[in-house]
């Protein structure tokens, strides 16, 4: 049983329709996003289901997962806070922001909060260099930018999630 297909038949059909019928493999990236929608990471089972849909091997799907930073083969935070600390943002205080944020919320870079709610990652340039400090949040709902941030702003955001997730 292809559970991914069961769950997202309509979305999968829409995604496949974007590409020529004999080039289904193009759909591998959107399908990985689809699989990640539940839990913010992809399992090996889901990779092989994608392979089945696209008629490629699980290994070929995994190769794509492994190549990109927005795909995760292991669970992390439900919300991944990805702070840009690349050079242009760092010139505008992003590194201090990250340090202070981690201190404030008590989670180290690359680690996940105890309740599994969020993790904090340092990432490369997100094309918002003029609005540092900034980060994006990757979650089941996709990716959302938060720019010109202060530690307090971010803290409030996290508290919001806590409330939402109960």
């Amino acid at each position: 049983m292809n559970q991914l297909h069961e769950k997202y038949a309509k979305e999968i059909a829409e995604i496949l329709a974007k590409y020529p019928a004999d080039r289904k493999r193009s759909a591998v990236m959107p399908l990985i996003y689809l699989a990640q929608r539940d839990g913010n990471y992809i399992t090996k089972q889901e990779m092989s289901e994608i392979g089945e849909i696209l008629e490629i091997t699980t290994t070929e799907v995994a190769s794509i997962v492994g190549f990109y930073t927005l795909y995760h083969d292991k669970p992390g935070g439900k919300y991944r806070i990805q702070v840009c600390t690349d050079m242009p943002c760092a010139l505008r205080g992003a590194e201090e922001f990250l340090v202070n944020l981690c201190e404030n919320v008590g989670v180290k870079v690359g680690e996940t909060s105890e309740d599994g709610l969020f993790s904090i990652e340092a990432v490369m340039c997100l094309a918002a260099c003029d609005k540092a400090p900034m980060f994006q949040v990757q979650s089941d709902d996709g990716i959302e930018y938060h720019e010109n941030q202060t530690v307090e702003d971010t803290r409030a955001l996290i508290d919001g999630w806590k409330k939402k997730e109960g």
């Binding site: 974007k18 590409y19 193009s26 990236m29 959107p30 990985i32 996003y33 190549f67 990109y68 930073t69 927005l70 795909y71 990432v123 490369m124």
Partner: peptide, 10 residues
């Protein structure tokens, strides 16, 4: 026109 999203690779 179709959009296609990358996934984090310069």
């Amino acid at each position: 026109i179709f959009t296609h999203l990358g996934a984090g690779a310069y």
